[in-house]
Amino acid sequence: MSIDRSEVEKIAHLARLNITEETLAATTRSLGEVLALVDELQAVDTSGISPLAHPLDTTQRLRADEVTEPNRREQLQENAPAAEDGLFLVPKVID
């Protein structure tokens, strides 16, 4: 498994990562090295072993259906770059 520049560009776009022209080659190379490691792992025979969903060998705990969170809009919106009338403001969404 290998990866080329255009794939790195596509993945960077999907993840909204700004990879500059200068770092693109280095990123492509280091991602390629990671994939080479994955190739080694792929070589292990895993037939008969069920896929792992989580490294912890335990299961999800559940909570009761109760409202426990108060309204903390004021504090939470202090982190937002822009808010108005209780709404978070973001660059205009175009359909």
């Binding site: 409202v67 903390r72 809009r73 209780g86």
Partner: peptide
């Protein structure tokens, strides 16, 4: 544990 009630003031039922 935030409420799901319909029609609340914006972002008053959105927790961390």
């Amino acid at each position: 544990g935030a409420s799901t009630a319909f029609g609340a003031e914006p972002n008053t039922q959105a927790c961390a």
